[in-house]
Structure formats: C-alpha cells, structure tokens
C-alpha cells in the first residue's frame, strides 16, 4: 500500500520535473539571453531544493518500477516476498539517491 502510494506520488513529481526540463530546453534553444536567464533561475537555491526532490522521486520510481516489472513476470507475488521486496526497494532507492547526489553535486568521480 505505502509503496504503491509513493510510486504514484513520485511519478507525478517526475512529470512536474519534466516541465522544468522542457523550460530548460526551450531556453537553450532560445539564444544567449534566454540561456543566461535560465542558468540564473535554475541555479537558485529553491531550484536546487527541487532537484533533491527530483532525485528522490527518480530513484524511488525507477526501483519501484523494476519491482513492478518483476511482478509482471508472475514472480515475487507471495505476501512474504512482497513484504521483503518493499524493504529492498526502500534500501535500493536510498542507495541510488546517494550515488546520484554524490556524483552530481559532491564532485564524486569528476575532479573540478
């Protein structure tokens, strides 16, 4: 139940994130003035907070989606298995989130 609700919410959140990406793409295509403005807006602290939310949503939605793919093959549908995989989804999505945050912002793997 909880995993299902979270999957819906993160999915909805990702669609909102897509709108932001569309904005960025149109700005990039719209010439240097628009680009500069977009770069300013998208690096505001509020925007960065939003990216953290997006990373959480992306990680969870991806991992939970893989769980659904496995279910669609008819596997892992026993009650005990589903309980266990719910915890795996939680753990794996937190791990994926940390990896993304490390790579994107803390400079992991990319000396600046």
């Amino acid at each position: 139940m909880v995993t299902s609700i979270l999957n819906r919410f993160t999915g909805a959140g990702l669609s909102v994130g897509l709108l932001l990406m569309v904005y960025w793409l149109t700005a990039v295509a719209g010439g240097p003035v628009a680009q500069a403005r977009a770069a300013r807006i998208l690096s505001l602290p509020v925007a960065k907070l939003f990216y953290v939310g997006l990373v959480i949503a992306f990680s969870y939605h991806l991992i939970a989606g893989i769980r659904h793919l496995v279910w669609d093959t008819g596997r892992g549908l026993e009650k005990s298995q589903a309980r266990r995989s719910a915890w795996w989804v939680a753990a794996a999505s937190v791990a994926l989130m940390l990896v993304i945050i490390y790579c994107a912002w803390l400079g992991g793997g990319h000396p600046r």
């Binding site: 139940m1 299902s4 279910w71 093959t73 008819g74 549908l77 009650k79």
Partner: peptide, 26 residues
C-alpha cells in the same frame, strides 16, 4: 489492478488474488 497488494494482504483465507490477476495478465 496496479498490484497494490492490499487484496493478498488482507485475505482471511490466505489466498492470493494479486498473483491470480498477474497470471491472467500474463
């Protein structure tokens, strides 16, 4: 059916409707 699993969770006879539905989809 979006595999929410509440059905299987509550079944007082310990049946598994979620798996039955997944099998039909398959």
């Amino acid at each position: 059916c979006h595999t929410i699993m509440n059905c299987t969770d509550v079944c007082p006879k310990d049946l598994n409707p979620a798996r039955a539905i997944a099998e039909i989809k398959k």
